[in-house]
Design a binder for these strands. Sequence first.
DNA 1: ATAATAGTGTCTCTCAGACACTATTAA
DNA 2: TTAATAGTGTCTGAGAGACACTATTAT
Lengths: 250, 250
Amino acid sequence: MATKKPTPRASGPDFERPLVTVDVVIFTVIEEQLKVLLVRRPETATDPYPGRMALPGGFINVDVDASLYDCALRKLGEKTGFKTPYLEQLGSWGSTKRDPRGWCATHVYFALVPPPEDSEAAVSAASAASEWVEVDTALRKRLAFDHAEILTAAVERLRGKVEYTSLPAFLLQEPFTLPQLQRTYEIVLGRPMDKSAFRKRMLDAQFLVEEGSIAGDAGRSAMGYRILDRERAAVFPRTFRSVEVQSTKE
Amino acid sequence: MATKKPTPRASGPDFERPLVTVDVVIFTVIEEQLKVLLVRRPETATDPYPGRMALPGGFINVDVDASLYDCALRKLGEKTGFKTPYLEQLGSWGSTKRDPRGWCATHVYFALVPPPEDSEAAVSAASAASEWVEVDTALRKRLAFDHAEILTAAVERLRGKVEYTSLPAFLLQEPFTLPQLQRTYEIVLGRPMDKSAFRKRMLDAQFLVEEGSIAGDAGRSAMGYRILDRERAAVFPRTFRSVEVQSTKE
DNA sequence: ATAATAGTGTCTCTCAGACACTATTAA
DNA sequence: TTAATAGTGTCTGAGAGACACTATTAT
C-alpha cells in the first residue's frame, strides 16, 4: 500500500497523470429479463455522485493488479461468486469532464455470468449494496458518471455479437437445454426465433457437448448440453437476420 | 503546462496513478502492400527502448487533450497530414510490466488513411523519423514495448472487419475505381477475390457514389467512386468466405 | 485487329427462415 | 387420450462464388 498522494516513484512525463479506473458491465438473465449488476455509490458527500447507482468498478491498484484484465477479474470476483465467466474488453472512455475529480480514463470490461444461486444473490445484495437491474430500467436510472453511455455501448455490443456468436450460452447454468438456450437468445435480442433454424445453427456450430437428458416441468424431456470450450464463443457463418429484411418489392 | 512531478491537483485514490498513453496504429496501402506507420524512439538512454521502432503515440496531456479520441486525433495529425481518416478505438493494454517506467496503460486507436502524396511522404519521413513499413516486416522488427502484440491485434481486427465491411475504401485516395478497391481488398486479405461477386456486393451495399469515368494506363476506362458517408463504414449482410470452406467431402 | 482492362449473366451451393410434421413425457 | 413440450423434414429465398461471357479503350 502506498501513502497518501505520493510522488510517483517511477519516471514519466512532466505533466499530471490522469486517474485510471476499471469498470465491469456484468450481464445475466434472471426471470426472463436481461439484467445488469449495479452498485450504489457511497452517500459520503466527498465522493462524486453520492447515492447514485453505478457500474461496479474502481481505481486500479498498482500494487495489487498485475494487468487491466486482472483488475477486471478482481472487481468481478468481488461482486459475484464468478464461475469461469465470459469476460472481454469493451473499450475505454476518458475525458476531462467525465469525473469531477479530474481527467479520468476508465477501461471497461464486459462479463456474462449465469444467474446467481439464491444464496449467493442474498449474500451479494446484502453485503455489497449491489443489485441486478433490468437493462432498460437501469438506463432510465440516471447512473453515475457516463455509465449510461457505457451501458448503452455494452448492450449494443452484446446484441450485436449475439447475432452471430454463441455468447448467450454463457448466461446459463450448465447443463442447459436447447429450448432454454433459444429462450435466452430471444430475451437478449427481444424477438422470437424459429426453432428449426435455431437448432440447426447451434448443433452445426459444434460448440456443445451432450450431457444426458433433463426433464422439465411438463412435456418431453430435453437433451442437456455443456459448452465445449469456455474460453471462446463459437462464431456462426452468418448473422441471424442478415441486415433487416428490406422488401423493396411491394 | 504543469511543473515537474506535480502533486495531482484533483482528488482521487490514495495510491499511485498509472502512466497513461495513447498509441495509434495507422494503416495505408503503398506499392501494393499493407503498411503501418512506425516512428523511431529517441536514442537518449533515459528513454525506454532507445532507437527502437514503435507505434506513434505518447502520454496524454491533461491540459491539451479533451478526450482519448481527441488525443488520438492529435497524434494522428502530428504524424500525417490526415485527410478525414477512419479512426476507431482498438482496445487498451495495461500492466505492471509493459513499460519500465512503471504501471502503464495505453489506449490504442486504429486509423486508415490514403497513401501520402510524395511531397507529404518526404516531409513526414524527414521531420519525424517516421516510416511506412510493410506489416509483416514491422512484426519482425522487435518493436518497443508490447507494440508487436498490439500491431498483431490491429491487423487481426482489420482483416476481420474487412471480411464484412467497406473499410478498405478508406485506404484509397478518392475518387477510386472498383478494380482499385478490389485490389485493395486483395492486398489486405492476402487472397484473390472474384470480380463479379465483389462488384455485386459493393454496389448492392449502396455506400458509393459515382464520380465520372477514370482512364487507366491501358484498356477500358472505369467508373470513379467516392464514399457516400465517410463517418461510418458499410456493413455487408454476410462475410466474404463464410468461415473457411471446410470440405468434409474428400 | 489485338491486347488489356471493365463490367455482366448464369449457374450452383450454403444456410436462414417459414412452417408443417413427428416424438416423448406426464397427467 | 390429451396437453405440452422436444425435435425433424421440406421448401424457399438471399446472397457468395465460379466462370464464361460481353463491352470499351488504346495501340
